[in-house]
Write a protein that binds this DNA or RNA. Structure first.
Lengths: 341, 341
DNA sequence: TTGTAGGCGTTATCAT
DNA sequence: ATGATAACGCCTACAA
């Protein structure tokens, strides 16, 4: 087994000083051609590679970025992550991922751990626990230390930092407008509790679209779940009791489960009832019929987040100006919607 | 902005030496109660936390583990990752993820980068490119340096290291046996090219089960794709030309797409044709009917991989004994299979 | 052209 | 009870 070799080994072996070796390997003009040759040859032969940790300590730069997300078994987050990882890689950064598991405590612990020198900056989406609690001190502490932070998707106005979101409100607005244009009258919304910023915005878009088109905003047409967990009974109950000809869902799963149930009831999609779901994931694509979706462009979002972060990291200057980039959602039309006129 | 504070700052501020501060913060008995109190109070007040990088350099231990996987937008890998991250966290390790994107080159580059001190060990699943090429020198180099390595799911016999896999062969064998017990006669296999170790093993189990039950092994009943990419046309073509009453698929997507097509053709599932798919993911669960699946226990697999790796990392002693843990797959029965007698 | 010395932040050993 | 020193691996300003 050949252990990693250091400058010191090379220096000792070749009877020169460490700094000579260091310079020679950087091809410095200061070093004589012959010495340089010997050193470089030896280094190549023994596959010398500088130790990242030592360089990090010296430069006070780790070339690592910390990503903290609520869950990884989740299509949207994985696409964002892919965007981050990909961009970061092109810039020579590695990515350390921590899962908050939707828990405030885990989010805090993970952040503090990483903030002690392991990373140069954070990219994160707030956990449900954090959004519920409304306590952002761990984020403030990190930014106070001058560590750059970019929030995506699940953000909060209270935090001063760069952000990337999609225009959830507009996505919902357009979805409902499409239903209305297709002559749907009873448009339901399936959503989660308000402390998810995304649900809040989507609900706002839903309401606004109804009002703008002179339709009644009826709380009875809203099915609200406390979390992202699915509750089949509540869905059955809702669709048994409520007459509906279109459904906007804040996520895929609620939409798919609902489609399944109404189909079992004998309703036809899209003839009798039409569906649109947020987050164009794998379920939307492979459902029968395919679920028309509001695509969130996760990969693009991750790429932008990484870009914003790395710029801040490498800019050095302590700017106190933060920007929020808002991406426009896109419609992916599939079989679950069709003009009903 | 309050920058991170170091031992040196505290020492200077309190007029003591750095080593006194270091000891006091470790609650060493050597330091007088009064001094210790002052130092600890000051540290608490200024929220002193030791710098991870400096500690890594000193200890030659980063407490990071490197995970290299082909793709993250993939249900199985995310469940494995969750298992890894979770276990690693309980042991005080962080996880650096790199995506090989199924490319040999990216896999090599990422590994070499991380191997230069950033991590204490690797957990990985081989990229398609690597399996195709059959070149494992980058792995040998890493293990030669004494860096522990655990391979999961996509493994290769040529590599000497710890491994975690599921018994793919047995999973396929059982699936086919179930079909036969349900009186299915024409059992198709949808698979990928042989260089995926998992496809190879699953195909072997499929064949073995047929032979053991005195059924003919007919190449005509096998639909083989070059990659994991889906090809709708090939699927349509296959099901139009081939008479089949049961289908085993090496992944969810092929199964779901096939189910969709045969249903559109007017066949009933499971009455006319029955399906079983590998990898019990989100698609299997929400398909209509639900897809009976061979569950791979990704999370467990990740946990075991992390456990094996961390043991090796912390054991120090250079053992040359490697083990392969094989997990037994489990059946998750859903609507896509039913006794047809 | 080559080498020395100091520092990045921490810890451990060995003085005082 | 406290402090000086060296070391982890690398880099670089400054000497020689």
């Amino acid at each position: 087994m050949k252990r990693k070799i250091t400058l010191k080994h090379i220096a000792r072996e070749l009877g020169v000083s460490i700094s000579t070796v260091s310079k020679a390997l950087k091809n410095s003009e200061e070093i004589g051609a012959e010495t340089k040759g010997r050193i470089q040859a030896y280094a190549k032969l023994h596959n010398y590679k500088p130790n990242n940790i030592a360089i990090s300590l010296k430069n006070k730069r780790t070339k690592n970025i910390g990503v903290i997300i609520p869950d990884i078994v989740h299509h949207f987050f994985t696409t964002v992550f892919r965007g981050i990882e990909n961009y970061a890689n092109t810039k020579g950064y590695n990515v350390i991922v921590c899962l908050s598991d939707e828990s405030f405590d885990k989010e805090v612990i993970n952040m503090e751990l990483l903030a002690n020198g392991s990373i140069d900056g954070f990219i994160m989406a707030l956990s449900a626990g954090t959004q519920q609690k409304g306590d952002y001190n761990h984020l403030k502490e990190v930014t106070d230390q001058g560590i750059p932070l970019v929030l995506f998707d699940r953000v909060a106005d209270e935090i001063n930092c760069d952000k990337v979101v999609i225009n959830d409100r507009e996505g919902a607005y357009q979805a409902v407008s499409k239903f209305i244009k297709d002559d749907r009258k009873k448009i339901a919304l399936i959503t989660t509790d308000e402390h998810y910023s995304v649900s809040r915005d989507r609900a706002a878009g839903y309401k606004q679209a109804l009002l703008d088109h002179n339709l009644e905003y009826d709380e009875g047409l809203i099915l609200k779940f406390p979390t992202m967990e699915i509750d089949e009974d509540a869905i059955e109950d809702f669709f048994n009791k409520t007459e509906v000809d279109a459904v906007l869902s804040v996520n895929e799963i609620f939409a798919i489960a609902s489609m399944r149930f109404v189909q079992a009831k004998g309703l036809r999609i899209p003839e009798d009832i039409s569906f649109i779901g947020f987050t164009d994931g794998i379920l939307s694509k492979y459902a029968t019929p395919g679920l028309t979706a509001v695509a969130q462009h996760g990969e693009k979002m991750g790429e932008i987040a990484a870009q914003m972060l790395i710029e801040k990291i490498e800019l050095e200057v302590e700017e106190e100006t933060y920007v929020t980039r808002m991406l426009e959602p896109t419609f992916v039309e599939r079989g679950s919607t069709r003009n009903n006129k």
